[in-house]
């Protein structure tokens, strides 16, 4: 029986990933759930690294940990009252939680069985080598069209997010202030 170091590292990282995801999916406190996502994202980055996807591991840390996580923290801080944070991510009724758990368990059982028992065509993995060059050449070669389309998507996302999230014009803001003089508790948004 030959268990090498990489296998042990895999089980540690997988436990970190799944454990943090479990906490993020079930914690009653939304702030703790978001911070728990940190472990999941780092764990997935580690799994990418072990799958010889070094470029993706770095991208995962940069985009998810540096971008999406911070964005979610902003959203949490801007939308939930501090005194209600303890139960800010309370689940729905016990019926809906039960149904959700049943659906998730069914999906997990199905895909888990499939993953373990299906006759995957499993080639011998190649050596660990830097992947960034070939990814870059693919992005500027065969995958150029989706790559360019992605830049248009990102432009649309930037404009759309600004349009959706910005305050209304100055006139309606004045009328809003006039109509609810004491309810001005999103001052910090601007």
């Amino acid at each position: 029986m030959n268990v090498d170091l990489a296998d042990i590292v895999f089980f540690i990282v997988a436990a970190l990933t799944v454990g943090c995801a479990l906490y993020a999916a079930s914690a009653p406190n939304i702030v703790r759930a978001v911070f728990s996502l940190l472990g999941t994202f780092f764990g997935v980055a580690g799994l990418y690294a072990m799958l010889a996807a070094d470029f993706l591991a770095v991208i995962q840390v940069m985009v998810y940990v540096g971008g999406i996580l911070v964005l979610m923290l902003f959203a949490v801080m801007l939308t939930s009252q501090i005194e209600a944070a303890g139960e800010s991510a309370k689940s729905g009724s016990s019926t809906s939680v039960g149904v959700a758990a049943a659906v998730a368990a069914g999906v997990l059982a199905f895909f888990g069985t499939l993953a373990v028992h299906a006759p995957w065509h499993e080639a011998e993995p190649g050596a660990f080598e830097p992947i960034t060059g070939s990814v870059g050449e693919a992005l500027l070669g065969p995958a150029l069209l989706p790559f360019e389309a992605l830049s248009v998507v990102l432009l649309g996302v930037v404009i759309g997010a600004i349009v959706v999230a910005r305050r209304r014009g100055p006139r309606s803001e004045v009328s809003l202030r006039a109509s609810e003089p004491s309810g001005d508790d999103d001052r910090e948004v601007s």
Binding site: A14, T17, V18, A21, L22, A24, A25, S26, I30, A33, V34, L37, T40, V44, L47, M72, A75, V76, T79, S80, S88, A89, K90, S91, G92, S96, V97, V99, A100, A101, V103, A104, A105, V107, L108, F111, G112, L114, A115, V116
Partner: peptide
């Protein structure tokens, strides 16, 4: 694949059971 399936199931559970919109996005 098993790790990914577990992540998927947990995400599905989270998105279906939570009421907080940010938690659904998690």
């Amino acid at each position: 694949l098993v790790v990914a399936a577990t992540l998927f199931a947990l995400g599905l559970f989270c998105a279906l059971s939570r009421r907080n919109a940010v938690a659904i996005m998690i």
